[in-house]
């Protein structure tokens, strides 16, 4: 099952991920990404992969677990 990962130190709060997948990503008061879920279903993978790739600093990845 694919797992969402984030490099919290790299995150700059650009928030493209939130626009692309508001069910999976949010931004906290300090401007850092929050993962709203960890494991995702295969049917969500294309959409979440595109949301992850919309990060300007490549802080988001999706790994196979």
């Amino acid at each position: 099952m694919p797992v969402l990962k984030a490099d919290f130190g790299a995150c700059q709060g650009y928030a493209n991920c939130v626009a692309g997948a508001p069910d999976a990503y949010d931004i906290d008061d300090d401007g850092t990404v929050v993962l709203l879920k960890e494991r995702i279903g295969a049917e969500d993978l294309p959409r979440l992969q595109e949301a992850a790739r919309s990060c300007p600093v490549s802080a988001l990845t999706i790994e196979d677990a």
């Binding site: 650009y14 928030a15 906290d28 300090d30 401007g31």
Partner: peptide, 12 residues
């Protein structure tokens, strides 16, 4: 400016 949380809210 220096406020990503508010920008996210505004994009929504």
């Amino acid at each position: 400016v220096n406020w990503p949380r508010a920008l996210v809210e505004c994009r929504r």
